[in-house]
Computed example of a mutant assay.
Amino acid sequence: MEKEIYIIRHCEAVGQPYEANLTKRGLHQANHLADFYSKIKIDQIISSPFLRAIQSIEPTSNEKKIDIVLDDRLSERMLSSIDLPDWLDKLEATFEDMELKFDGGESSQEATNRAISVIDEIIKSEKKSTIVVTHGNLMSLILKQFNEEFGFENWKKLSNPDIYLLKFKNNEFDCERLWQDC
């Protein structure tokens, strides 16, 4: 059975905390996502429990009358529990060394493993078409799993929101960017 997995990076938000809301522009983007999906058949929606991820997909959920399933494995990756003034350099290093880990943080490999466990469950399920809503770093790590050349520079080019489609058929996959920023 062919599977389509739409991986979405959340819309523009006011910040990084768990409870950060979407901006006014982000709310507009969420409605634009609903328009984007209006003619696409979707069987399920799985989202990070972070508020900005939920708010990003609520209009689509409401229009499609599909409940949003929250999954902690799609949560934002924590690079470190301490403030890292050079966090961007540190993040780049974690794309090169997947096992690199900072104080109280999660390695790229650990984050990849939890995210890919969601993707694996989707592939094994009876659902054909799934929306997965997550965060930029985790989205990049998922995509890197299917295209090892997807790296830090690709992460920097992601928009809020962004959409990539992973298609699986006969144990092969194809990955394509779908979103055109509005």
Rank of each mutant, 00 (worst) to 15 (best):
E2P: 03
K3F: 08
I5T: 04
I5V: 13
I8G: 04
I8S: 03
R9N: 10
E12F: 00
Y18N: 11
R25M: 11
R25P: 00
R25N: 14
N31S: 13
N31F: 10
H32R: 13
L33W: 10
L33F: 08
A34S: 15
D35A: 09
F36K: 00
K39G: 05
K39M: 09
K41S: 14
D43H: 10
I45Q: 03
I45D: 09
I46G: 00
S48C: 01
S48W: 01
S48K: 00
A53F: 10
A53H: 02
A53R: 01
A53W: 07
I57R: 00
P59I: 13
N62Q: 14
E63H: 08
E63A: 14
K65D: 14
K65M: 11
D67W: 03
I68F: 12
V69C: 06
D71S: 03
M78G: 01
S80Y: 02
I82N: 08
D83S: 12
L84C: 04
D86G: 04
W87T: 02
D89S: 12
E92S: 13
A93F: 06
A93S: 14
F95R: 06
D97K: 12
F102M: 05
G105L: 11
E106R: 01
E106D: 12
S117F: 08
V118K: 04
V118F: 09
D120A: 10
E121I: 03
I122S: 04
K124S: 14
K124G: 12
S125E: 08
E126R: 07
K128T: 14
I131S: 03
V133E: 10
V133Y: 09
T134F: 02
H135S: 08
H135A: 10
N137V: 13
N147Y: 13
N147V: 03
N147D: 15
E149F: 06
K156P: 01
K156R: 15
K157V: 02
L158H: 11
S159T: 15
D162A: 11
K167I: 02
F168Y: 09
E172A: 06
R177L: 05
C182H: 12
